[in-house]
Design a protein around this nucleic acid. Structure first.
Length: 493
DNA sequence: GTAGGGTTAG
């Protein structure tokens, strides 16, 4: 089969690459591309396939061939090579190729920026973008899509999406739906639904923009709005993708609307989307949030292909049904069998399960194992879990030390953990520091004021309680529960 | 004649 036909077939199965195609591709490339001197075009096409099928060993063989033939300054080939390495997660190799390019164009820059962004290295992506701005090569809308999505990664100084939005407006990229989707996603993850709604209202939406909007509502606890939009999509016969189904199941779970969740399940079966692990994971999540753990497990059992995502979903199912100990048993069992490679998401679930089950020391040892046994650099979410573990144990010193020494800026979740534990263990000094940090980070939230007042009251510091009340009045903070978001109430525990 | 980078989901 000619290589172009193979690509067409692979594109048709964007999510699930057929094993048959994959084997055919690998042997085709080995025989016809690596055997004799391939053309530049063939090499690009072959690398494109390596990227799509995440065939890292073939990618490396082609890389060697490129160097051997001497095509290593061709920008088309280098961009494809960067992309292939990136899609296989070989960031070091991608960066070597990138740095070896003598004269860059916007595609080679964008390939690397995008690669960093897709591999959870948003900070580095932004640095590279700044480096690009200092050259004569100008970013285009594809570059902006990559760099904006890099900003959504974590709450920190990297969050300069608004500045990038301004660039986009000036350069006239605002009508590009890829750009619009990345901006909607960015603003929704910053809690800026006002901006999100304006962007959505002023674009000619396609199915990806609609999917992004549904997940924006989900991120901001507006499941009803997500369902409304989904119904509109059904009425207007908009193409439903696996992303749509995953997000809408998420909304059903958050709202615990089992009947509607079941209807979506029927739709999943009808559309034949039950091969997709994200959809299956979302179904399990929906059932377990609706309290139907048996059905969640049943969905898992029926899944023909069980990968890391689905195993993580199973652990999540038990963890969020209050069966943290069982969740950890499954996790330990999978680790022993060595057919499971836990990732960051999985460790977050496991650490949270430890926390909720009161298994503090076990959680701390998992965190260490994550680094030593699985070679994973902890991200902000796992640090937040560890800080919470120390804080709940009453080891406030270690929690604080970690917040100072970790490679991220401490966020509101961490300061809230610390503040709650200060209340629990009666630490006035640290509690004051944590609360004042939260006043800055979340200026409209009444929670830290009230917790700090509780800490002062428990310590008999009535003057200070009075001063907090005064401060609330001065800053216009309302005390009633009605105005609080669900997140704030949850954090108060 | 043929070739490169992009948004949304655990």
């Amino acid at each position: 089969m000619p290589i172009r036909c193979l690509i067409k077939r692979l594109k048709r199965h964007a999510t699930l690459v057929h094993v048959k195609d994959y084997r055919a591709l690998a042997s085709f490339v080995q025989e016809n591309v690596l055997g004799k001197k391939p053309s530049k075009y063939q090499l690009c096409t072959a690398l494109n396939c390596c990227a799509k099928t995440q065939n890292s060993s073939l990618g490396s063989q082609i890389h060697a061939k490129i160097v051997h033939i001497g095509f290593d300054q061709n920008l088309y080939i280098n961009s494809s090579l960067i992309n292939a390495h990136v899609k296989c997660g070989s960031m070091g190799d991608a960066m070597k190729v990138f740095r070896g390019i003598e004269l860059h164009d916007e595609v080679s820059w964008t390939s690397m920026i995008c690669g960093l962004s897709q591999n959870r290295q948003g900070g580095k992506a932004l640095c590279l973008f700044k480096e690009m701005l200092a050259t004569v090569v100008r970013p285009n809308c594809v570059t902006y899509v990559s760099v904006i999505s890099a900003c959504t990664e974590q709450e920190s100084v990297y969050r300069c999406g608004e500045l990038l939005h301004a660039h986009v407006i000036i350069l006239g990229h605002e009508s590009n739906n890829f750009v619009v989707s990345s901006l909607i996603d960015y603003y929704s993850k910053c809690g800026r639904m006002d901006k999100t709604v304006v962007l959505f209202g002023s674009c000619i939406s396609d199915y990806v923009v609609l999917n992004t909007m549904i997940s924006a509502y989900n991120h901001n606890q507006q499941g009803e709005e997500a369902l409304k939009l989904f119904r509109k999509m059904l009425d207007e016969n908009v193409n439903l993708s696996e992303h749509t189904l995953t997000s809408i199941l998420d909304a059903c779970g958050a709202l615990t609307v089992l009947q509607q969740g079941k209807q979506v399940h029927a739709l999943v079966t009808k559309l034949g989307s039950d091969y997709n692990t994200f959809v299956v994971g979302a179904l399990m999540d929906m059932y377990s949030k609706c309290g139907n753990i048996d059905e969640a497990c049943h969905v898992f059992d029926l899944a023909s292909y069980k990968n890391n995502i689905l195993w993580t979903s199973l652990i999540t199912t038990y963890a969020q049904s209050g069966r943290g100990v069982d969740a950890l048993k499954i996790f330990d069992h999978l680790l022993m069998e060595k057919r499971f490679y836990p990732d960051h998401v999985c460790f977050t679930i496991v650490l949270t399960a430890c926390n909720h089950s009161g298994l503090i020391d076990k959680g701390i040892s998992y965190f260490k194992k994550m680094i030593t046994d699985y070679n994973l650099a902890p991200e902000i979410d796992q640090y937040a879990c560890l800080i919470d573990l120390y804080a709940r144990k009453g080891d406030l010193k270690s929690a604080k030390k970690l917040m100072e020494e970790m490679p991220f800026y401490a966020n509101a979740v961490m300061w809230s953990s610390l503040l709650s534990s200060c209340k629990e263990y009666g630490n006035v000094e640290l509690g004051t520091e944590a609360a004042y940090k939260l006043f800055e980070l979340e200026p409209h939230s009444p929670a830290p004021y009230l917790v700090l007042a509780d800490i002062y009251a428990a310590a008999g510091l009535w003057n200070r309680v009075q001063s907090i009340r005064k401060l609330m009045d001065e800053n216009g903070i309302r005390k009633s529960l009605a105005g609080w978001s669900r997140v704030e109430v949850d954090r108060m525990r």
